[in-house]
Simulated assay, not measured.
Amino acid sequence: MTKLKIAIQKSGRLSDGSLNLIRQCGIKIPRMKGALKAEASNFPLEFLFLRDDDIPGYVQDGVADLGIVGANEAVEKDKNVDTVHHLGFSKCRLSIAIPKDKKYDGLKDLDGKSIATSYPKILGDYLKENGVTADIHEISGSVEIAPNIGLADAICDLVSTGSTLMQNNLKEVESIFDSEALMIATPGLSEEKKAIVDQLLFRINAIQTADNNKYILLNAPKENLDTIINLLPGMRSPSILPLANEEYVSIHTVIAEDDFWSKIEALKEAGAEGILVVPIEKMIL
């Protein structure tokens, strides 16, 4: 039986997000502490638990058919892989930061300075595009400490909340790259493996669509039905159900959560009441 091998970060936030997504797809993953391999019991998928910066190379070489990796690592390693899908979690940014007490008037302030980073390619490309010449000092970890020990004038590292920068008396001055989890694949997969990838993506899309939408139930006076339907069109058309009070109906529909919040006042003005907002587990269009 044909199986896909998928490489996932062995620990950390990206690993947690990847495993959570796969479990939401209904795929059962037995995981023993410290194990580097596992097989799904109900889907043709084998898992390899690796360092995140090794994943693009393993996927390029076909050791793994698929990989879930941060866009920052995919771009930095610059391997020959196909981007299959943007997964939308583990969002962060790659930013340049300098000591809090240093003045900063723009990128030109970095001319001739030393910048410590684990992402020399992304940083180098960015500086070149902006006409800045700086000395890039590549280090593999604890980048934030570099200015404090005199190793560099600035750093370029991943930022999520910014708390690590604050703890090291640094301030973010330039955001140069936005990252999120990606699914990457070995180019030229067989038709059998492509079919399994399509099955996996079908499940992932159902989950992502559900995450971005909510199921809405509300009661409304019949006389305002057209106004409310125009506010909540639903996927095609909302469901209208009769109530014991013949002057009212119950309206059921699906709407993007952001759209709902932007229309809530108009719904209330149109007489909507008893509004319920329910999360959707899966949504197939």
Rank of each mutant, 00 (worst) to 15 (best):
M1G: 11
I8F: 03
S18L: 07
S18K: 05
N20W: 07
R23T: 15
G26N: 11
G26E: 09
I29C: 10
K33T: 11
G34D: 07
S41I: 10
L45K: 01
E46F: 08
F49N: 01
L50D: 10
I55Y: 00
G57W: 00
A64C: 07
G67N: 01
E73P: 02
D78A: 02
H85V: 03
K91C: 10
R93A: 11
K103G: 08
G106F: 03
L110K: 06
S118W: 00
P120N: 06
P120I: 06
K121E: 11
I122R: 03
N130L: 07
E138T: 14
I139D: 08
E144G: 09
I145P: 07
P147L: 08
N148C: 08
G150E: 13
D153L: 13
T161S: 15
L165T: 02
Q167I: 06
Q167H: 13
N168M: 14
K171V: 13
E172K: 15
D178M: 05
D178R: 09
A181N: 05
L182A: 03
P187K: 02
L189P: 01
E191I: 05
K193Y: 08
A206Y: 02
N213T: 09
L217T: 11
N219Q: 13
P221N: 13
E223R: 12
E223V: 11
L225R: 07
D226Q: 13
I228R: 01
S239A: 15
I240G: 03
I240K: 02
I240D: 05
L243K: 15
L243H: 05
A244N: 12
Y248L: 15
I255R: 00
A256L: 12
W261Q: 12
K268V: 15
E269P: 02
I275G: 03
V278E: 13
